[in-house]
């Protein structure tokens, strides 16, 4: 989906303003939103599915919410979608009496080991024979997927060179929409700054981005 989250190359947002000695969190509510996000992540499915929820915020919401406000909106959305609580419960903040046996929450040690061990996207299965080799010229396909994609707009139709192969990784575009992991080769592709931004860009500079095989086609000539 072509929306505001795909902002690489825009120049309208002003200067970067680093905060001196910035704390990890700016308030207790940010701590809780981070923790709620991680503690509910197993329940709410693959990371790319959860990323897509943020991408579906309206552009006005996306830009006016702070980072953790977006994450808060996501937990609310996914909780409602999963039927964790009813609209009435969400509105009142009070849980209605129910016959349903309560869920057993993830315990601190299990959560701890999820954080320490991670959730790799690399796969031993799937398409393991890469179509492209280091040094090959490729172009990023000019496609506009309606759902979740990690193919940024600024490389579509542009020509780059395969810099390295990262192995086989689950494919976000299908994983996000419960259409299977579709594991396939993932490449680091190098694009000249002049190819992306025109002849006025510094001639030596370049941008490297990770692109799945389905995002690429061979470039001849």
């Amino acid at each position: 989906m072509n929306s505001i989250h795909d902002m690489g190359g825009m120049t309208c947002f002003g200067a970067v303003k680093p905060e001196e000695d910035e704390p990890v969190f700016h308030g207790e509510w940010e701590r809780r939103v981070l923790a709620l996000t991680l503690a509910t992540s197993v329940l709410f499915g693959p990371l790319d599915r959860r990323r897509h929820v943020l991408e579906q915020l309206s552009p006005l919401e996306y830009l006016s919410y702070s980072y953790y406000e977006r994450w808060l909106a996501r937990i609310e959305h996914l909780s409602k979608e999963a039927g964790v609580f009813t609209d009435e419960e969400f509105a009142s903040g009070v849980v209605e009496p129910s016959e349903v046996v309560p869920n057993v929450p993830i315990d601190p040690d299990t959560m701890d080991s999820i954080i320490r061990q991670g959730d790799p996207s690399g796969r031993d299965s799937g398409r393991s024979e890469p179509c492209f080799a280091v040094g090959d010229r490729v172009s990023a396909r000019n496609i506009n997927p309606p759902g979740h994609t990690r193919l940024v707009r600024y490389v579509r139709g542009r020509v780059g060179v395969i810099h390295r192969l990262h192995g086989t990784h689950l494919f976000p575009d299908t994983t996000a929409h419960d259409k299977g992991e579709n594991p396939q080769p993932l490449y680091s592709v190098r694009f000249d700054a002049t190819e992306l931004w025109g002849s006025l860009a510094p001639i030596k500079d370049s941008l490297f981005i990770d692109l799945w095989e389905d995002y690429l086609e061979a470039e001849n000539g």
């Binding site: 969190f25 509510w29 701590r31 809780r32 939103v33 981070l34 923790a35 709620l36 991680l38 503690a39 509910t40 329940l43 808060l72 937990i75 609310e76 909780s79 964790v84 609580f85 419960e89 969400f90 903040g93 849980v95 309560p102 869920n103 057993v104 929450p105 993830i106 315990d107 601190p108 959560m111 701890d112 954080i115």
Partner: peptide, 23 residues
């Protein structure tokens, strides 16, 4: 955020101890 945490805790989705550990 407090209300959301309460709801999710009462539903057994998260526990306060786990949230504290993450933080």
């Amino acid at each position: 955020v407090r209300r959301l945490e309460n709801l999710l805790t009462e539903k057994g989705i998260v526990s306060k101890k786990t949230l504290d550990r993450v933080v």
